[in-house]
Amino acid sequence: MPANAVRIRLSVNGRSHDLEVEPRTLLVHALRDEIGLTGTNIGCDSSSCGACTILVDGQSAKSCTMLAVQAEGCDITTIEGLADTTDGDGLHPMQQAFHECHGLQCGYCTPGMILASVSLLEEYPDLDEPGVRVGLEGNLCRCTGYHNIVKAVLSAAGKEA
């Protein structure tokens, strides 16, 4: 480990992790390579695709555009911990909605898309279809054409598309 490595404590999915990382370590690499939570994916270099979206203190954030050191003191939720944030022992309602609406195909964008959607409905509870579409502007999918993703988010919001 390089000389300028720093010790940090990250709270991820309710668990505390003590890490020693280079300051330049991207949060997404800390989550994936250091903590082993590989559900958060990387799809670009430019904050464009949203595959790496996680929740930081309940709000969507692109973990490729945060340094691990910036996340100290924050509550991080990744896709692996999402279901635990709700009552019941199944999937989070958004995960369930993506499944029931066939809102995923290859599934690579899906963790980020689901977490972005959870945050979106939290922030804007009354979205209609155009609102959901614009709200997902920062998350790219190459398989679904978005049709069923939008349907899933509306369904999770209690609005049938």
């Binding site: 904050s47 949203g50 979206t53 930081v56 709000q59 969507s60 954030a61 692109k62 555009t65 945060m66 972005a116 945050s119 979106l120 922030e123 709200g135 502007e137 920062g138 998350n139």
Partner: peptide, 9 residues
């Protein structure tokens, strides 16, 4: 600005 995730940070 940007997208919701960008606006959060």
């Amino acid at each position: 600005v940007g997208d919701p995730a960008v606006r959060h940070r």
